[in-house]
Design a protein around this nucleic acid. Structure first.
Length: 787
RNA sequence: GGGCUUGUGGUCUAGUGGCUAUGACGUCUGCUUCACAGGCAGGAUAUCAAGGGUUCGAUUCCCUUCAGGCCCACCA
């Protein structure tokens, strides 16, 4: 009997290491800019480096790798770079925690040094997980070429961000304005709406006495923000509210501050809430801002940018918002102006990053115009192909809810500097030249040009950009926009893969900014993924402590079972899926099955195609071609789930259980079959195996690489993805064959016999006449009768 | 408050206006030295969330309710 060429009985995770280390070293997927092939580009999300990637993120990169590998096999030059996001607040916060400093209280140079120290340690952990997962990024090294690793805080990346700012400024898309905006006292910076989240915080509802000047009567007004009484602008009640109708046009006097303000009927007041009559102050929230603008009331800003009350707050001056609230409540109590306090849950806007309650403070900031781009943006959204289609709605909904322009300046340190200087003499803004594309640090550098007024007495800008202003140009960066002709030749970027939670930030801002810069849609396809949740279906989060580290899975099972699991488990563009160690372990079984099928086939020579194929062999070839067809259609739609399920099912239920069982005797051939028949078996076995491996190569790059190179001496990842061939004519159907085998097995089983035991005769349908010899040998039948 | 979405054997899932509702894990019985015990064969387990409607026929379409998830807005 022939010896199998493959010796080991199963695929082991130890076999992965030499494969991924050689990929890391040799970079076989390096992007060839000179290639004649069509470029397929993937704008991979640069992971944030200060925390190691968790299993959910890794899963999405693994899926992206499958798309990239499929596209490579279908003749594309695939741009699949690794980026690392290293800008912004999380790094600063990590530095503050680690070194126990407030970066706002140390010199800027020092603050940046602290951040660099954090970054030194940060980068490697995540990259290592990517390598071990067999992800075929173009490169693992930083460099000048297209496809090399990029970092968002490098001079190269930052200079491009600054270049986009200069261009947009010149197009009149950016302006500076002092207006009330979300301000985070913790981060000490203005933030965009997209960075605001809401949470329920315990608060108190205070019922406070106000006096009506004309009548001398008291009115009771409820508020959660008594410290803002000093900014009172107006008292309002609902026009339909009979209780207060007589007050319209009268004047209210605020407690303590004794300020006189008009009382008006206004639909904004809700009769059901509180006492039905409310005070309008500047600014408790964004609706207050709108109200003051609409009513043309003078805004009084009582909270300063350090989160403390200012001179407008009188005796509260210098206190923080919290302290001021406490103090004024005490004061109101003393003066018997506080009727009662009721505890309540107050839904409070907080900063997404520092979790501090947002205040509304007017500061001069830079804005990118977005309100007048709404129509254009909706058109872009329509042009994009979304996978899954429903994801488009997330983007459209967000576009609808955009109400103010995009504030892009931040008062922080570890981010891209806004490349401008201010002229001391004429007060105008001075920009550096558009070209060359260069990285500027105005807070410590001299301006390279003079002001138009001739002055060289310029002050460098100290503010920096919102990180989304950086990350919204990743597709331009990876495609070398503005630096070479590559972008124009190969635009747009083919695919943007990303999580659904950043549709309103990363996707939206990228589309907006790239449209403003290039006048076009920057992507063809958008693939939006849901999340990996823990075993109980709960979202993974640091605070819950249920984060699964990919290392744990890689150490336990290796990458291939994990990769197979991530394809088999579900369609992540439609639903979350649960991370279960049992299921990942279950995927190992399929690898063993594949391995052993290959091991079995490796006993036989890879024969040339015979002139005449046996009927049974024609059948399995047809089955495989069906599989090729359906797999290709699905892979084209970024669907790896359905094809892998089908391939797995085919491998197990059709190929191994039925075809291999039936062909076995002919392949061994101890003289019952002709040489020609034997060759047909050998040829078909290898044909089938090669196609199965090729179909699985995008999903399982390492096991398929190993088997393919060991058996056929070729690199599977540079093979062409199989194309479906014309169907061969056969006389029986798959379903009939499977039920026939099952029937024979059942008869033997019911008779208490082994499946290999001899059986005298069996009556079968005549469609199977042509596979008679295979049937008799497999089932050990002495005779077949046909009906 | 507005919108979206989900509910299928013990668990997790596929799917469809019409044959006996898919598969996996688990479970039970038997087999198995010749690719694979991480294997093979065969069982059992589901009022397809509840109620109503459209229909000859609904798990699928519509409405209501219940339970979960997500997003947005917002509460003086």
């Amino acid at each position: 009997m022939a010896e199998p060429k493959i010796k080991e009985k199963k695929w082991k995770k130890e076999l992965e290491e030499p494969i991924y280390t050689s990929w890391k070293k040799k970079e076989p997927y390096f992007f060839n800019e000179k290639s004649k092939k069509t470029v397929y580009s993937i704008d991979t999300p640069p992971p944030y480096v200060n925390t190691p990637v968790h299993i959910g993120q890794v899963t999405t990169y693994v899926l992206m790798d499958m798309f990239a590998r499929y596209k490579r096999m279908t003749g594309h030059e695939v741009l699949f770079p690794l980026g690392l996001d290293r800008n912004g607040l999380p790094i600063e916060m990590a530095a503050e925690k680690e070194f126990k400093v407030r970066l706002t209280e140390v010199p800027r140079k020092k603050a940046i040094e602290y951040c660099h120290k954090i970054l030194e340690k940060a980068t490697l952990a995540s990259v290592d997980s990517f390598v071990k997962c067999g992800i075929g990024f173009n490169s693992w090294k930083k460099g000048e070429y297209i496809g090399t690793v990029y970092e968002t805080d490098s001079a190269k990346y930052r200079s491009l961000t600054q270049h986009t700012f200069i261009k947009m400024w010149k197009k009149g898309l950016i302006y500076e304005d002092e207006r009330v905006n979300n301000y985070c006292p913790g981060c000490k910076t203005t933030i965009a709406d997209a960075e605001v989240i809401y949470t329920d915080l315990p608060g108190k509802f205070h019922d406070i006495k106000f006096k009506v000047k004309e009548t001398g009567e008291n009115i009771i007004i409820g508020t959660t923000r008594p410290e803002l009484i000093c900014t009172l602008g107006m008292i309002i009640f609902n026009p339909a509210d009979e209780r207060y109708k007589h007050l319209a046009g009268k004047t209210a006097i605020s407690p303590i501050f004794e300020k006189e303000v008009p009382i008006k009927a206004h639909p904004y007041a809700d009769m059901e809430k509180g006492t039905g009559i409310m005070m309008m102050c500047s600014f408790g929230d964004l609706t207050d801002i709108r109200f003051f603008r609409e009513e043309n009331l003078p805004e009084i800003v009582a909270i300063d940018k350090d989160g403390k009350m200012n001179e407008h707050a009188g005796f509260l001056k210098g206190l923080t918002v919290k302290e001021a609230r406490k103090k004024i409540v005490e004061e109101l109590e003393k003066k018997k102006l506080l009727v009662k306090q009721t505890p309540c849950q107050h839904r409070t806007p907080i900063c997404e990053r520092s979790k501090d309650p947002i205040e509304f403070i007017a500061m001069p900031e830079f804005y990118v115009k977005q309100l007048n781009f709404k129509t254009d943006m909706k058109k872009l959204a329509k042009k994009l192909n979304f996978y899954d289609k429903k994801s488009k709605q997330i983007l459209l909904d967000w576009m609808d809810s955009v109400k103010i322009d995009w504030p892009i300046s931040r008062r922080r340190f570890y981010a891209t500097e806004i490349p401008i200087w201010h002229c001391k003499k004429c007060g105008k803004v001075v920009l550096p030249p558009e070209k060359p594309i260069k990285y500027y640090q105005p807070w410590k550098e001299k301006c390279p040009v003079k002001c138009k007024c001739g002055s060289t007495d310029l002050i460098g800008e100290t503010r920096v950009f919102d990180t989304w202003f950086d990350s919204s140009i990743t597709p331009l960066n990876i495609m070398n926009w503005a630096r070479s002709k590559f972008y124009d030749k190969n635009k747009p970027c083919t695919l943007r893969p990303q999580g659904k939670e950043i549709v309103r930030t990363w996707l939206y801002y990228t589309l907006l900014k790239c449209y403003q810069l290039t006048g076009d849609c920057v992507f063809n396809d958008v693939w939006v993924n849901y999340h990996i949740v823990d075993e109980k279906g709960k979202k993974m989060s640091k605070s819950q402590g249920n984060i699964i580290d990919p290392k744990e899975i890689l150490d336990k099972f290796g990458a291939e079972p994990f990769r197979l699991w991530s394809a088999v488990e579900g369609n992540i563009t439609k639903t979350d899926f649960r991370c279960s160690f049992d299921r990942i372990e279950g995927a190992c079984k399929t690898l063993t099955k594949l391995w052993n099928v290959a091991r079995f086939i490796s006993m036989f020579p890879n024969a040339k195609k015979p002139t005449k194929l046996c009927e049974l062999d024609k059948w399995i070839i047809n089955e495989i071609n069906d599989l090729i067809k359906t797999s290709t259609e699905a892979y084209e739609k970024y669907d790896v789930h359905n094809p892998v399920i089908k391939i797995k099912h085919f491998l197990w239920e059709t190929f191994a259980s039925h075809y291999l069982e039936l062909v076995k005797n002919r392949a061994y051939n101890d003289d019952k079959f002709s040489k020609e028949e034997e060759k047909s078996a050998h040829y078909t076995l290898h044909y089938a195996l090669q196609r199965i491996l090729e179909l699985l190569a995008p999903v399982l790059p390492m096991i398929t690489h190993k088997l393919y190179s060991d058996l056929y001496g070729k690199e599977i990842h540079s093979q062409e993805f199989p194309k479906a061939e014309k169907k061969l004519k056969i006389e029986f159907t798959t379903a009939a064959l499977i039920s026939l085998n099952q029937a024979i097995w059942k008869v033997k089983k019911d008779a208490g016999k082994s499946l290999r035991d001899e059986k005298d005769s069996f009556e079968i349908n005549k469609q199977f006449k042509k596979i008679e010899k295979d049937m008799m040998a497999t089932h050990n039948l002495k005779e077949i009768k046909y009906n």
